[in-house]
Design a protein around this nucleic acid. Sequence first.
DNA 1: CATATACTTAGCCGCATGGATAAGTATCAA
DNA 2: TTGATACTTATCCATGCGGCTAAGTATATG
Lengths: 114, 114
Amino acid sequence: MDKYQEPLDSLFHALADPTRRAVVQRLVEGPAPVKELAAPHDMALPSFMKHISVLEDAGLITSQKQGRVRTCRFNPEKLAAAEKWFEQQRAIWASRFDNLDNLLTTLQGETDET
Amino acid sequence: MDKYQEPLDSLFHALADPTRRAVVQRLVEGPAPVKELAAPHDMALPSFMKHISVLEDAGLITSQKQGRVRTCRFNPEKLAAAEKWFEQQRAIWASRFDNLDNLLTTLQGETDET
DNA sequence: CATATACTTAGCCGCATGGATAAGTATCAA
DNA sequence: TTGATACTTATCCATGCGGCTAAGTATATG
């Protein structure tokens, strides 16, 4: 049983960590071996490898091993899926005044306080 | 001590759950009371309220109480911050062939296998 | 062949998360 | 003023997460 049924779950979970976002930010500039990726992070290697696994399971990166060295690469497809979700929400939000009912309830709400 | 020092941490964490994304998707269409938001989700109210708190702490939504009813609204600012991060990564990725070194190491890598 | 390198596997730990129930509070409706 | 409604607070529980160490494996390098 996978924990994340929906792809966006694992995707956003993977991005909800500064170490993992830093790895992605490094890999969009080009591929790198695990050792190089791990260097800036003050953390034991097995701990760091878990982050790599999370990113790989989410589909944000791929990796292959040659000899002793595992090289990681960024995979742009999944990021696009996330961006798509954002754009959909933004589009609906932008069209929220398309009918008068919405406009009225919104204006009403804006006169309230907590 | 907050768990998430960086705003993107709490933001992506908040979005890494289908219940919470569904709430956001509902709220981009307009404000709604907690009871209405909770209705589609087969979950006890206190459990659901935790999701609302997570979204509010992340800054994705706001809420105010009038009488017995707490009304929730979408807040677009934080979503924009996330979108900005995505765009930055996409921009760097798009410019990865700007120098020959990157191109060569990439072409080299594409002939490998796992 | 011996040693260093680059992971990999296994197991442990404390805290956070996502769910639950039970009981409390405040407001509105009859 | 009684009762229903809409949360709220408190507490509990199982699981997951992010870190650790210790030990193992496989591949260069001297």
